[in-house]
Design a binder for these strands. Structure first.
Lengths: 234, 234
DNA sequence: TTAGGTTTATTTGTCATACAATTGAACAAA
DNA sequence: TTTGTTCAATTGTATGACAAATAAACCTAA
């Protein structure tokens, strides 16, 4: 053969399947604003007619959209766009990284760091009160406080009041304590955790974004260290 | 009617469709470690046999997984789990928030703030050199530098070297400049942007996580302010 | 032997059709 | 007004058939 082919960068040609094109078409209805979240879509019969595809193909597309939580379907009622974003797509993404604990830990860190910063700007009084209550409860218990710990983080995440971010953090936190359910926790851990949570809370109350960030950074660094240690042992 | 029904919190019952259950089953193969990314799945005939579902139902499930980029299918070859995560699921999630620019801006902020922090820990010399080159180029041009700007941010995002986060930031950045392609940019903007980028870069070079964060925070605050102003005008 | 062409069999891609299951809506009955 | 019943529309599932693509095996000729 003549020539060096290493530089050739050809776009792999794979004719897109019908169902995939249909998916794009339907998403396009949202992007272009022709339909809005919550709106009803045409029936399967109509759609397959308009798009010139068979019903199975159309249903493959709709199934895709449904498992991603983008649409809901009910027998006899019809098909509707979801009105709020769900966490399914992200959680499915994560399945491919199941097992890659460092990557998951890192992603969680990155996301929570961003979240706590935004939360510092937007958190409501109610949510602050919730956090304070969680701190109080956690101070009382020195064991079995993991759920309270989790709740604290989740509350902060939700205090950012952003649907996109909420859909992302949930699966991450879940995946996290699925894979690392039981990490040995000492009394000392309890004290440190509590104290770090306290710092974060105070910063949030002051609406101090930078403070909240650095508090969370310190906290998650400890968490990460524990996780990595645990990982090295096994 | 007797009694107050407001307190009733019943779990809406909706028997899951077959295809959805099949999706979960297949994902389970990954989660449980029975199969790994890149592995080949059984043929459709085998699967529909083992799972006791018809082929259309099975194909609905496989289509779902394919549009999310979790599997790849090729005629005659078979079906394989993807080996790396894709950005499709997230980008589809975003479609539902298509018009909600403040939410998108916020999500971008949060994610980039987390990313730059992690990047500060992990960025490679090569990537630092890339950033420096981008800065140099941008200093030369005072107009049409948006692409360089974008590239700077994207390079930082990829410097976190985390597949999960990469899959998330890409659609966000794209959605962002789809909806806000043309924002008026003055010479003063150019100078400020350049200077802020410089600060971020220096922090990254020092592997200074906190510095990188605060640099990025300041920068994105400016971006956000511009976006919001623009939004208020229209 | 080796390079290239041809056939074959396997697997995914698409379609048409039929029927089951669910349930909103209209209507009937108490 | 309430409750039960029927009807019809829509999604859910199954079967079977065929098309399209192509890896693998085989064949042919230089």
């Amino acid at each position: 053969m003549a020539g060096n082919h290493n530089e050739l960068q050809m776009r792999g040609i794979k004719r897109e399947t019908m169902s995939k094109q249909v998916v794009d078409q339907i998403i396009g209805l949202l992007r272009s604003g022709q339909l809005k979240p919550g709106d009803k879509l045409p029936t399967e019969a109509e759609l397959s007619g308009k798009l010139f595809v068979s019903r199975p193909v159309l249903r493959e597309a709709l199934s895709s959209l449904e498992t991603m939580g983008m649409i809901h379907r009910k027998t006899r009622e019809g098909t509707y766009f979801a009105d709020k974003i769900g966490s399914k797509p992200f959680s499915i993404m994560l399945a491919l990284s199941a097992g890659d604990i460092p990557a998951i830990m890192e992603a969680r860190m990155a996301l929570e760091l961003g979240l706590v910063t935004v939360a510092a700007e937007k958190i409501s009084e109610d949510q602050l009160a919730q956090l304070e209550e969680l701190l109080r409860l956690m101070a009382l218990r020195t064991k079995d406080y993991v759920d309270l710990d989790k709740e604290f983080h989740r509350t902060i995440a939700y205090s950012a009041n952003n649907p996109i971010l909420e859909g992302s953090i949930d699966p991450l936190l879940n995946m996290f304590d699925e894979t690392l359910s039981q990490i040995a926790l000492t009394d000392r851990d309890h004290a440190i955790t509590l104290q770090e949570h306290q710092v974060i809370f105070e910063a949030l109350r002051r609406r101090d974004a930078a403070g909240a960030f650095s508090g969370m950074y310190a906290h998650l660094n400890h968490v990460r260290a524990k996780v990595m240690k645990r990982l090295a042992e096994s």
